[in-house]
Amino acid sequence: MRRRWLKGERLITLLLLLPSVIAVAVFVYGFIGWTGYVSMSNWNQLLPDYTFVGLRNFFKLFAHPRFQIDLRNLAVFTALFLTGSLAIGFLLAVLLDRKVRGEGFFRTIYLYPMSLSFIVTGVVWRWLMNPGSPQMGSTGINLLLEKLGLGFLKSGWYTDPRVGIKAVAVAAIWQMSGYVMAMYLAGLRGIPEELREAARVDGASEWQVYRYVILPLLRPITLGAIIILGHISLKIYDLIVAMTGPGIGFSTDVPAYFMWETTFHANRFAQGAAIAVILLLMVSLLIVPYLIFSVRREAEV
């Protein structure tokens, strides 16, 4: 009687879950804990040194000029990437929702960039945004501008420290706005026509219909998109590697890239771990409220 709860289906369920529970416990949470431990150690050469130094690595990091630039870059990138992707994605979704002819065709075109990896996107946009020079001639966007007679608009793009990370954000927006469009399109299709009709009957203009009816109804989708894009943005690394590298004066550097370099080139394993912990905290600031929100909602249902 006593061990009844371990009998039958419960036992099988438990056994079936156990391998993945153990794997996740070790390979996800175990390694997170390990990284946290290393970030407070003195491991700053190849040979591990686990002397506890408290938060020294973190203080050093925040005083590091390169890390300060990285955080600023990350903030600019995230802001541009989120607003850009959401705005363009929403616009495309609204346009496609107009039951245009060839909707399937356009939908596919807009969605395609998402199927590429950031590495491919990075390489392509590196070429497109190649600054060129008067002597060797222009390529990509600058060549296009030249041909259109808009030569004064030519720019150094990602090689210009004043543009830097913003150029990378353009590439990221190009890649992910189609995905946001797909999410919004699904959301729009889920809104019954009657609601819009009712608003129109009440005398709302088309703008007001979107502002006061559609957008509030799409809020869960916006939230989901922000979560997904936000964590991609905070962890961005591959796009930087393929497209620009850290750039002149670290104008396109991000914490993830710095983490790689400081760990495996400067042998500052503890400092690298500290950057990883900071990235994790930033992502969890974004994700945890969402998780709490959705768990609570599930409980209500």
Binding site: N130, P131, G132, S133, Q135, M136, G156, Y158, T159
Partner: peptide, 11 residues
């Protein structure tokens, strides 16, 4: 020297 380099050196 930076006054005399190719403008696209970062790329």
């Amino acid at each position: 020297i930076l006054d005399y380099v190719n403008p696209d050196y970062a790329a």
